[in-house]
Design a binder for these strands. Structure first.
Lengths: 174, 174
DNA sequence: GTTTTTCTATAGTGACCACTACAAAAAAAT
DNA sequence: ATTTTTTTGTAGTGGTCACTATAGAAAAAC
């Protein structure tokens, strides 16, 4: 997971993935079927863990604005990463990949994440849920890209705080 | 330029670039020196043309809030692209590239663009210029990523309009 | 202890990568 | 018209990619 997260799907080879796991290519293919097979598992584990900042924010309760603000703050804390694993694996892991299978897997994970945010927002603002979900998703994509380009936690948190205010303002009615 | 923009630096080969230009590999290397050499030229042409939405927005005049709002609106109109060339070449062209030279070239272009925005914002809000520039850059990165993932012009313009309001609010003093 | 089965390592598959040596053709110069 | 220079196409360089055939080692069954 670390390698995919740090360098993206295409830039890491099967031999290197095997070395990280302590296995050789034949065992790799016996275990995962293909490079994309491991990527799919990796995405699943990633989205099921602490990287799902929206799920974590929602678990603590609160109204829509509170949960979204907490989501952005958690993303700002998470995205700088460590050991080169910056940004979000789902949002940027298959960016510019030449492999359509990897793109499709990441795309499905993104759609799932966006749908969860959209449906949650819809509980308070059903007719503006799409627009507000786009605002949140675009913000998270931007924060992930900025983190990948070296933005540290302080800068991301500053942006997250401004976006929290923006979201509250938009939610409460233009 | 079209190929780099549509698929990213790594995913397009020299043979294919030559075919697009109507030349064979040896002529390609005589003309550009290397694949990264063409990428550098491509970035320069891109940033010197209509893709530099901030320069275009600034050329029309107005105060900081007006120019930034116009910048975001122009980006929303440009980023959906055509023929697969979605998003911004500078912001996403070398994303996840395995070639450090391509990354460095894109990085330099990004820093240049951010500095221009920052310095412009500093003419009205010198002590908040960094934070506000981050807000603008993160927004544009997010819009570029969203466009690459298939967001159409309508959705991007909706986000741009909300971000315009957010920027105005932040600029006028939290 | 012998046999059978499962696993894994070595080594290599063809395909594609950025890049180039070389020779033929076109252009320029004398 | 001949020579020199530049340009270009053919073909191939070593390297790396995802992926696999085969054979030997470990483990399980009897």
């Amino acid at each position: 997971m670390r390698l995919f997260h740090a360098r993206g799907y295409d830039a890491v080879g099967v031999a290197e993935l095997g070395a990280e796991l302590g296995i050789k290519p034949p065992s790799f293919y016996a275990a995962f079927g293909s490079k994309a097979g491991l990527f799919e598992r990796t995405l699943r584990r990633y989205a099921a863990g602490e990287a799902n900042v929206f799920a974590r924010a929602r678990a603590e309760g609160g109204d829509v604005a509170t949960v979204i603000g907490r989501t952005l703050a958690l993303a700002a804390a998470l995205y700088p990463g460590q050991g080169g694993t910056a940004g979000c694996l789902v949002l940027d892991g298959a960016r510019n990949s030449a492999d359509p299978e990897a793109q499709a897997l990441a795309d499905a994970a993104k759609r799932e994440g966006r749908a969860a945010v959209r449906d949650f927002i819809a509980t308070e603002a059903p007719d503006r849920a799409d627009a507000l979900a786009d605002l949140v998703v675009v913000t998270m994509m931007g924060m992930s890209a900025a983190a990948r380009d070296g933005a540290d936690r302080g800068r991301l948190e500053r942006v997250a705080a401004m976006m929290d205010r923006a979201f509250r303002r938009e939610l409460s009615g233009a």
